[in-house]
Simulated assay, not measured.
Amino acid sequence: MRIDSPGLTTDLDLLRLSGSTVTDHGDHLVIRTEANPTFWWGNFVLVPTAPRADEVDRWVARFEEEFPEAGHRAVGFALPGGGTQAWAELGWEVEGDVDLATTGLPVGTKVPDGIQVRALESDDDWEQSAQVGARDTAQDERKDRLVFERRRAAAQRGLVESGRAHWVGAFDGGRLVARLGIVRLGELARYQDVVTLASHRRRGLAGALVRAAGEWAFEDPAVKQLVIVAEDGGPAIGLYQRAGFAEVARHVGVSRPIA
């Protein structure tokens, strides 16, 4: 099954590298991450078309057939538009994403005084990264979220140690306040998990990290293009466009928890 979105194709490549399986059923893919069953977008169904209002029941049933024990439902669509309203009316969260890419080194920003930009290396660095990932979780859900974030951090660290990836952070007095990763995938390199704590936003940290990660990616002459994915309508798109990225595709996902 063909998927043209560089954001989705690199998502699938990253999932495979982390141990997930991707099974092609002809008109859809089933993605499964047995090591992290609470990872919604590691356990989902991906459809190559836009969502259609008359296919809601079909794709819900297909998900439930593949993941009968899951505490969530998640279906991705490789094209935007279509019948997303039908899903929203049934209580599903609809998330639109924009793929952006550049063939040049991103324009960076000056690192503020007192901030150290460096690679994540130690056990404490990766634990801080997991804590950053769980930063906005409600207290009664925090324990489960940290389990998820620590599993994800372990998978990311494995990619770094394999030489395929680079995770870089901004540290303020030893405290991780922003971080992101990038993974080399042949001719493409894909950014991952761009996060800046609310206390340190609008200080140029994300721009500096995007630049630093891009420099590392382009050290490999095989890499021809950098890819990053941002929430449709979100503030990050402007930051990436100012850094030199341009929109190349859009796609959408629908999800909900099981009460």
Rank of each mutant, 00 (worst) to 15 (best):
V45G: 05
W41E: 09
E247N: 10
V117C: 01
G174C: 00
I237D: 10
G173I: 01
R145V: 13
D27G: 03
S122E: 09
L226K: 04
E65Y: 11
R242C: 07
A35N: 06
R203A: 04
D11K: 10
W216S: 02
G26P: 09
T196E: 12
D140S: 11
I182A: 15
A138C: 07
E34P: 08
D11G: 02
A246F: 13
F245H: 03
V194A: 10
A134D: 01
S162P: 06
T9G: 05
F39M: 15
G76W: 08
H166R: 15
L176E: 10
R118D: 02
R16V: 10
T10D: 06
V47A: 11
S20C: 09
G7Q: 08
P235Y: 08
D172N: 14
V194P: 01
I237K: 15
G82P: 00
P257R: 09
I31H: 03
E93N: 13
E64H: 05
G169R: 10
K224V: 06
A222R: 14
Q85W: 07
D11R: 12
E69M: 04
G82H: 04
G214L: 11
L188E: 13
V254E: 02
G181C: 12
R201T: 14
W41V: 07
E231N: 14
Q225L: 09
G42K: 00
W87V: 00
A206Y: 07
D57H: 13
V194C: 10
A259E: 12
R52S: 12
G82Q: 11
A243Q: 04
A88K: 00
L146G: 01
R151E: 15
G234V: 02
R190T: 12
G214Y: 10
G114L: 02
A155D: 13
R202T: 14
G186F: 15
V194H: 03
Q131F: 09
T23P: 12
V227P: 13
G81N: 01
A213E: 11
Q225I: 05
R256K: 08
V223D: 08
V98L: 01
S199T: 10
D24P: 00
H166D: 15
W92M: 00
T49P: 03
W87E: 00
W216C: 04
G204V: 02
A153H: 04
L226D: 06
T103G: 10
V194E: 04
R164V: 06
V94S: 02
A70I: 00
S255H: 08
L209G: 04
G114H: 02
Q241A: 06
G96E: 01
D11Y: 14
T33A: 04
L14W: 14
T33C: 09
I258N: 08
V30M: 03
L209Y: 03
H200R: 04
H28T: 06
R242G: 09
V47E: 04
T109S: 12
G83R: 01
L205S: 04
A134G: 06
N43P: 06
A78Y: 00
Q241C: 08
A155V: 14
V160R: 10
E127H: 11
Q128R: 05
P112L: 14
A50I: 03
M1F: 07
G207R: 07
R32G: 09
W92S: 02
I258M: 04
D136C: 14
V147H: 07
A212G: 03
R190Q: 13
W40Y: 13
Y240V: 05
E69S: 14
V147E: 13
L159I: 05
A74N: 02
F44W: 15
E219V: 10
G133P: 12
D125K: 00
R142H: 06
V75E: 08
